[in-house]
Design a protein around this nucleic acid. Structure first.
Length: 255
DNA sequence: ATGACTCCCAGTGGGAGA
């Protein structure tokens, strides 16, 4: 089965691109981030017409997540249980026996800021919850916009970005702690091109110059690791007119 | 260069993203 994640940076703007991408890439499930739509405005009918079931959790202006799947997702969940959060950042559901967790991790803005403190709290709550979730669902995939570049090779200018947001020791420690739960970075299971990014700044001709970060990830549980066939970043949508600043990441799991 | 772009809500500008 193929699973994917894509930060669309406004589903209202990107819906035509999403439908076009799904037509070209009929994945079994896709998680979206930054839909930026309250649930009453979510384009469920258009997505269902494209052959997908959808569960979503949104808010005005910021954040917002969705889980699209060919077959209905069961046991859907919105946000982290027990973590009081007014921001819509997590959606989960079970698709064909695989627990799919989609996350829009907090940006954090700048180390030391209130938003950075929130990011740390959120990451801790996510990990605590995932530990229990993994116990119940050994076959689990965590994917989304992590807003963390796990390693210097995931950064176009590691010196310039040293200790900056997405690249701090604290954020990278959280990424490693998720791996400590038995979650594996599917992208790094394979040899990949150098300078592989999932996000490029809108400014500075960054995409043309291939100056970006790899901050969108797919982590698979130990039980699924040996079944991962491929994991790729699809740069094509970034070449569209009015693109999202993020590219989709796709994993193929034999199941 | 504390910029550059895009989106949103707003309302003739400003916050946030990353």
């Amino acid at each position: 089965m193929k699973l994917a994640t894509w930060n669309v940076n406004s589903l209202a703007v990107r819906l035509p691109q999403l439908l076009a991408w799904l037509a070209e890439n009929p994945v079994d499930a896709l998680v979206l981030q930054e839909t930026k739509l309250t649930d009453d405005k979510f384009p469920a009918a258009e997505i269902e017409a494209a052959g997908y079931q959808v569960v979503f959790h949104g808010q005005k202006t910021y954040n917002g997540v969705a889980l699209l799947s060919r077959t209905p997702a069961s046991d859907a969940l919105r946000n982290i249980p027990g973590f009081d959060d007014d921001q819509a950042r997590v959606i989960a559901g079970t698709v064909r026996g695989v627990r799919v967790v989609g996350g829009y991790f907090p940006n954090g803005q700048a180390p030391g800021s209130d938003k950075f403190v929130y990011k740390m709290r959120w990451l801790t709550a996510l990990r605590m919850w995932l530990a229990t979730e993994l116990a119940q669902h050994p076959q689990l995939v965590l994917m989304g916009d992590f807003n963390i570049a796990p390693d210097d090779r995931d950064v176009y200018d590691p010196i310039g970005w040293m200790d900056q947001i997405h690249c701090t020791k604290e954020e990278r420690a959280h990424f490693q702690a998720l791996q400590g739960l038995g979650l594996v970075d599917a992208f790094r299971l394979f040899e990949q091109p150098l300078k592989s990014w999932s996000w490029w700044e809108y400014r500075n001709l960054a995409f043309r110059k291939n100056q970006g970060l790899r901050i969108d990830h797919i982590l698979v549980s130990e039980a699924l690791r040996s079944q991962v066939q491929t994991c790729v970043i699809d740069k094509l949508p970034r070449k569209n007119e009015r693109p999202s600043d993020h590219a989709p990441v796709v994993v193929d799991i034999a199941a």
